[in-house]
C-alpha cells in the first residue's frame, strides 16, 4: 500500500504544524494523531519533536505510544524521526540526567561539544544551516538522501545529538567546530534526521518526498 498516507505522531510536544504542511506539499495525506490504532494502521510514521528528551519520552509514555511505535518500526514500515524524534530512536540520552529512549537504533544522545577542535568556545545551541557530508562508509542511494548532493545545507536547531553505537548506522554528518555531528542515521527503514527537512527549503522537501516514496 503506497498511497502516500502518513501518520505524524502528536504527543503534546513541539511545533508539528510545519512538518504536516511540508509533507502535504510533497503530496502526502497527513494524519496528525496520538491514537494507538491510527498509528498501528499507518503505512508510514513521522515522529517529530522539539524540546527536551525527557519531556518527549514522557509525552510518548503518558499516551501509551512507546510500544506501538516500537512495534510499528519492527513491522518494517518506514519510520522517520526528526530532531528530538531522531534522538528518541536511540537507546539512552544524557540530557539532564539519564533517560531511556525507544532503542530502535542503538546509540547515545550526548551534548554537542561547546568547544571547537581548535579549543575556542562555540555557540550552543547549534542553530543554523550546515552542509551535509556522508558519514564514513555511508551510501546515500536507497535512502531519503538519494537526490541530495553532498554539501547540501540543512537547517538544525539542537544542543544534543546522537552517537550511534554501530557506525554503519550513520548516514550523514555535519561539522560543527571541526567535530562530526550525526545529522542523519538509518537502520533498515528506520531513519532519523537531526536537521529539520521541513525547514530546509526545497532540498528538505525532496527528502520528505523520498521518504513518502519509500
Amino acid at each position: 500500500m503506497n498511497d502516500r498516507q502518513v501518520a505524524v505522531v502528536d504527543y503534546g510536544i513541539g511545533n508539528v504544524f510545519s512538518v504536516c504542511r511540508a509533507l502535504e506539499r510533497c503530496g502526502a495525506k497527513v494524519i496528525l494523531t496520538g491514537d494507538v490504532s491510527q498509528i498501528e494502521a499507518a503505512s508510514r510514521l513521522v515522529l517529530p519533536g522539539v524540546g527536551a528528551f525527557a519531556d518527549g519520552m514522557l509525552g510518548l509514555r503518558e499516551r501509551g505510544l512507546v510500544e506501538p511505535i516500537r512495534r510499528f518500526a519492527r513491522s518494517g514500515r518506514p519510520l522517520l524521526g526528526i530532531c528530538l524524534g531522531m534522538q528518541m530512536l536511540a537507546t539512552v540520552s544524557e540530557e539532564f540526567g539519564r533517560h531511556e529512549g525507544l532503542n530502535l537504533i542503538p546509540g547515545r544522545v550526548v551534548a554537542v561539544p561547546d568547544r571547537a577542535l581548535e579549543g575556542h568556545l562555540q555557540k550552543i545551541p547549534h542553530v543554523g544551516w550546515s552542509a551535509l557530508v556522508a558519514a564514513p562508509g555511508a551510501i546515500w542511494s536507497e535512502s531519503l538522501l538519494r537526490d541530495t548532493p553532498e554539501g547540501t545545507a540543512v537547517y538544525l536547531v539542537h544542543s544534543f545529538s546522537v552517537v550511534p553505537d554501530d557506525h554503519r548506522h550513520g548516514l550523514a554528518d555535519c561539522l560543527y567546530g571541526g567535530h562530526r555531528i550525526a545529522a542523519a542515521m538509518r537502520s533498515g527503514r528506520i531513519v532519523g534526521c537531526q536537521f529539520h527537512p521541513e525547514k530546509s527549503g526545497e532540498a528538505g522537501l525532496r527528502m520528505l518526498a523520498q521518504f513518502l516514496d519509500a
Binding site: 542553530v127 543554523g128 544551516w129 550546515s130 545545507a153 560543527y176 567546530g177
Partner: peptide
C-alpha cells in the same frame, strides 16, 4: 560550519 544567514 554554520553559514552566515541571509534573511528577508
Amino acid at each position: 560550519m554554520t553559514s552566515v544567514r541571509l534573511i528577508a
